[in-house]
Amino acid sequence: MNINLTLIGQSITFLVFVWFCMKFIWPPIVAALEKRRVQIADGLAAADRGKHELELAARKAADSLKDAKAQAAEIVAQAEKRAGQIIEDAKQAAHAEGERQLTAAKAEIDQEANRAREALREQVAALAVAGAEKILRREINAQTHADLLNQLKAEL
């Protein structure tokens, strides 16, 4: 229990151990810790950056999608409009064609009627002339009265 040389021995041992620790143990361990701290910090920063980039890309993709959708909608609308136009045009064309054909048919009918009327008139005239001939046979000479007869025919 008495104080003796152990005191001095322990002091020297203590100083030597502290020196050893200071020289060979503390610096490499702390350096390794610091290096790892930096590595982790870098890794976290990279992760953050990646996350940010991902976010940007997602936003960009969403934008593109929206654009594409809008474009598609526009195209569809245009197509519909165009289809309507085509149908309208076709309707009008058909209508016009119908009108034209109707007019042509009417004209033909008129023509036919005129022709028939003409033929009828000629026949009536011939009949009238024939009737008049029969009545006037005796009194009228066909050659002498040819002018008169022709005039009558023309008037009829």
């Binding site: 229990m1 104080i3 003796n4 152990t6 005191l7 001095i8 021995g9 322990q10 002091s11 041992t13 203590f14 100083l15």
Partner: peptide, 11 residues
């Protein structure tokens, strides 16, 4: 052992 503890504390 007080020698040990004093050895350190005195240093």
């Amino acid at each position: 052992d007080p020698n040990i503890t004093f050895g350190m504390s005195i240093t």
